[in-house]
Each structure stands twice: as structure tokens, then as C-alpha cells.
Design a protein around this nucleic acid. Structure first.
Lengths: 203, 203
DNA sequence: AACATCCTGGATCGATCGGTCAAATATTGG
DNA sequence: CCAATATTTGACCGATCGATCCAGGATGTT
């Protein structure tokens, strides 16, 4: 046995992830990926199998990194779902405003380009997004809210979060995004308060 | 003089528009466009100049068709902005549910792929979207709402509308989209009511 | 030091892209 | 019915794509 790995796989994945993130799947050519990672085509294929497989690995890495951030934010206020959602959006806004990483959201833009993706990648994107929505749903769950209302509210928060990424890519200013979040958070807080009030009244 | 136009330009534009709409700019190849319109490459270039120019013409056509629908909906309830917004979303939901046209929204997905577009096309997309947002702003304008709150609310409605298109492309069900719209409309109605109440109180 | 093993970089493949051009076709004016 | 003119067609171009392959180099064991 000999000839061990001669490059840092994680570092290369980070670079590749950013290329996909910034360019989208189709416009992330192997040349770009190779330049960004400092690897030749042969190395990329040897290490990851194919462009599709590399993409999926990057998706997982992205979901792992930012999914954990979302989870932390949602868990920060276990007794106050409205505040938790606020923190959730804060993660997205911070990431979007961070000049060190590309704009938007890798998952969101992958989803928007879904029809042109490989079937496997499309499935993976869907699964990762569903997981994110489920996290929001769990954080919003309070006894006073029935299942249908909970699903709707989670879908709503999830939808707005997706739109933040898309809008920022389209050129919407950070101030406008904050406005959207502010209104959304108000809606969530009021919806929850209304559910509680109704529950108390009906008791 | 002789040799007049031998094909229906509008019909060809309709076909081309749907190809861009369904495939996105990059994946709408000239072969696909040619097959869809029944025209050869030479004809396309003779009539429209370039792929970019054809795309922009399709953008304008799209904005003209659906912009008019949005405008009609918003104007249907001149004294009730909340109802107007409801009608506005109704147009989007109907179009998304219509099996006769591709899913999503040509402008929304063009915006989401903005970074890979030609600079001219990108500018055009931005302009058309700004126009749409301005329409919403005008419909929401009531004396009791100050400029900042009006801008924020218009941005919010605009953002949710964009997200509907993106989400539907990503596989979100029509029922979920309706839920998002319902919550959003409630928010708009309450925001407007709150502004009116505050204005009366402060008088 | 010599060997076996794997990684690396670059040449190369077939396919497809947007765009161009000349020959063939269709239409209109005389 | 013929000639003039514009349009349509399909072959073709250079560029770029994802993917493959192989010779050469780096690495760790013996």
C-alpha cells in the first residue's frame, strides 16, 4: 500500500461547492471546478466519480453546514417559536450578506434549476429541502396549533426563506430582504398568538 | 419588392417563449427553438437577430401578456387593496395551475438565472420585474400608509409572488401554494387595517 | 535504494453549443 | 409566364462541454 491522498478532500469540496453555488450546476464547468480546486480532471473523477456525484457531495456538504446553523437558530428559543423563526431568518440573511460566500442559497437555486438537473441530483435537492421544511415545522409546533395550520405556516416560512435567496440573486437589496423578513415574522407571531387565543377561548 | 414574410411571427414567438419558459435560457438550444417554431436557424436569425434578441423579445411578450393580466386583477378592486392583492395572486396561481403553459414564471426563473444571462437580458429582466413591483405598490397605496411601509409591503407581496413560481418549479403542490397565498393575503389585509386604525387614532 | 501503488496533468474524444453562409425555394411585380 | 428579390433551408464553423485515457511523477513500504 502506498500513494496516499495528496490533496485535502474537504478543502477541495469547499471550493467546488462555492463554484456550484455561484455558477449553478450547468455553468460550473470542469475547467472552472478544476481551477478552483487546483485539481486536474483525472483527479476530480478519481476522487468523486463524475460531475453529478461531485455536485451531490457538495449539496450534502452545504446542507450539513447550513442545516446545522438553521437547526441551532431554531433551537435557540424552544419556548418561543416566533423568536425561533426570527433567528432562522437571521441565519439566511447573514449568509446572504456575507461577502465571503456567494449570494443566494445553493439548494434554492438548484431547486429553481431543477428541471435541467440529473434525476438523482433533483431527488437529492428535494430531500434536503423537505428536511429543512420539516425542521421549521417542528420548531413551530405548539399544542394550540392544529396540524393543517401548522403545515401551512411552515410552508409559508419555508417559501419566504426560499424567496430571500432568489431575490438576492436577482438584485434585491439587503434592506428590502430585511423588510420582507420583518413582515413575515410579524405574521408568524400573530398567527401563533391567534391560535393560542382561540384555544383559550374555546376551552 | 417581393418575397414577403412566410410565417406567422407572433405564433413563432409564442412557441419560442414557451421553450424559454420551460427550459430556461441556457437550455433552450437553437435546435429546440427551431423545432418548436418550425423555423430553421437562418430564419430565426433573419427575423430576430440573435438568440439573445429573440429571448428579449419573448421576455417583452411575456411581460405584455401576463403584465396586463396582473394589471387587470389589481385594478378590479380599486377601493380594496387587500382584495386586489388577492386577485393578483389569483392570476399567478391560475397560470401556474394551467396545464397549457409551462410551470413557474418566465421572469422569475430568468431572474434566478440572472448571473448567467447576457448583460442586456439581465437588465431587461430587472426592468420588467421592477415594473411589476411598481404595479403592486400603486395598487396598495392608501393615504393611511406611509411611504416606507408601502414600499415594504409591496416588496413583500412581490417576493411572495416570485416564490410561488420558484416553489412550483421545485415541486411544491398547488395546495401548498394556496396556503402560502392565503397567509400572505391575511397579512396584507391586517397590515392595511392596522395602518388605518393607527391613522384614525392619531387624528 | 528499489519497487509497487496510486495520484496527477494534459492530450484527446465525441457531442453539442451559438452563429454563419451559400444554394434552393417561394413570392410578387411586370 | 418570366425575372427580380427576399426568405428558407441545411450544411458547416470554431468553441466548449463532460468524460476518458495514459504516460509520468510522487509516495510509502520493504
Amino acid at each position: 500500500m502506498s500513494g496516499r491522498k495528496q490533496f485535502d478532500v474537504d478543502a477541495a469540496l469547499d471550493r467546488a461547492m462555492r463554484v456550484f453555488w455561484q455558477q449553478g450546476y450547468a455553468d460550473a464547468s470542469l475547467d472552472l471546478l478544476g481551477t478552483a480546486t487546483g485539481l486536474g480532471r483525472g483527479s476530480l473523477y478519481g476522487a468523486f466519480g463524475s460531475k453529478d456525484a461531485l455536485f451531490r457531495t457538495c449539496l450534502d456538504r452545504y446542507a450539513s453546514i447550513y442545516g446545522a446553523q438553521y437547526e441551532r437558530a431554531l433551537a435557540a428559543y424552544p419556548d418561543n417559536p416566533a423568536r425561533a423563526v426570527e433567528a432562522f431568518f437571521g441565519v439566511a440573511l447573514d449568509r446572504i450578506a456575507d461577502p465571503a460566500v456567494p449570494g443566494g442559497c445553493l439548494l434554492a437555486q438548484s431547486a429553481s434549476q431543477s428541471p435541467t438537473l440529473n434525476a438523482d441530483s433533483r431527488t437529492r435537492v428535494r430531500a434536503l429541502l423537505d428536511k429543512q421544511r420539516e425542521r421549521v415545522r417542528a420548531a413551530l409546533s405548539i399544542p394550540e396549533l392544529d396540524a393543517k395550520a401548522l403545515d401551512d405556516l411552515a410552508t409559508y416560512v419555508f417559501a419566504v426563506n426560499q424567496s430571500l435567496a432568489v431575490l438576492s440573486r436577482a438584485g434585491t437589496t439587503g434592506a428590502d430582504l430585511h423588510s420582507v423578513v420583518r413582515i413575515t415574522c410579524t405574521t408568524v407571531a400573530e398567527t401563533l398568538a391567534r391560535a393560542k387565543a382561540k384555544s383559550t377561548r374555546g376551552r
